[in-house]
Amino acid sequence: MKALLLRDLALAFRLGGGGLMALGFFAIAGFLIPIGIGGTEALGRVAGGVIWVSALLACLLSLDRLFQADFEDGSLDLILLAPPPLEISVLAKAAAHWLTTGAPLVALSPLLALTLDLAPAAWPALILSLLIGTPALSLVGAAGAALTVGVRRGGLLLSLLVLPLYLPTMILGARAVERAGTGLDPWPALALSGAVTLVALAASPFAAAAALRVNLR
């Protein structure tokens, strides 16, 4: 599991891996929306939602390569045949995906919060909500990527399948930011978002492994 995790991380960060591409997309999406909206009064109120939607899209962007590259060069077959159960290998790949997209997004989010004029009171809630919520994006995304691994040009289909599944995480994350910004307690939303992440952690390795077994048979 550790070897697979390190291999995926190395692949993402070496030349041509495009590991931090999602981060660039996140930043650009986050900067384009305020330019599109114009005006600054409205910005602070929508900032939490804008950052969350950008995070969703950035995460989606790198998902279709999660299993596709390994499927094409045959290493997915080797992973399937390796001694650790496929569920664990899926978990390792999802963890590597989170470390290369989710974690950098969390690190970059204060910059976006600054440019989007988010209320300072909401900053801790934003960072916490991303920290709690983005693992669910990688986990659920792994299940979606496993479903579409055999499909030619599966990227569009993947977004159609996965975005509705991202809704609970996004709603709860954005609500936590909104509540903190308006002086309410963000913890109920954060706790529920944690619950969604735990459900994803419990369910999606099995769903993804089942889908991969079907696709590789």
């Binding site: 599944l165 809704l167 609970p168 709603i171 609500r175």
Partner: peptide
């Protein structure tokens, strides 16, 4: 594969329903 999707979907459909309802 669609059966797997349907089962994952039903879990998340229920969660989204309550996520939108609570706040």
């Amino acid at each position: 594969l669609t059966a797997v999707l349907c089962l994952v979907g039903v879990v998340f459909a229920v969660m989204s329903r309550y996520a939108v309802e609570i706040f």
